[in-house]
């Protein structure tokens, strides 16, 4: 029988995958993808808790997380386009302009 902890463990594994992506990627677009992975992992955990405790609060939080992810993508992609026009690349090492 599938319990709450099964879903939470899957969510933890997916979150760690996103964390590895955030840590090792150097391309800004790929960093955005890894962030989406982490947000989705948290949504799974919220939906599972909402189901197993018969509570709607988890689903509400998941909705607001989706709204935040949508606005983050809208603003972030605009910034990425401006950066790409200015520097010609999305690599974080090329963009590091404040090296001491």
């Amino acid at each position: 029988m599938i319990g709450l902890s099964h879903y939470l463990i899957v969510s933890a594994i997916i979150f760690s995958i996103g964390l590895v992506g955030v840590l090792r990627r150097r391309n800004l677009l790929m960093l955005f993808f890894a962030t989406e992975v982490m947000l989705n992992a948290v949504n799974i955990a919220f939906a599972a808790i909402s189901h197993y405790y018969n509570d709607l609060t988890g689903q509400m939080f998941a909705f607001f997380i989706i709204a935040i992810a949508a606005s983050e993508v809208a603003v972030g992609l605009g910034i990425l386009i401006v950066l790409y026009k200015k520097h010609g690349s999305l690599d974080l090492d090329d963009l590091a302009s404040m090296r001491g």
Partner: peptide, 9 residues
Amino acid sequence: AMIAGIILA
């Protein structure tokens, strides 16, 4: 966010 995206991009 929509206005910011339009202005930036």
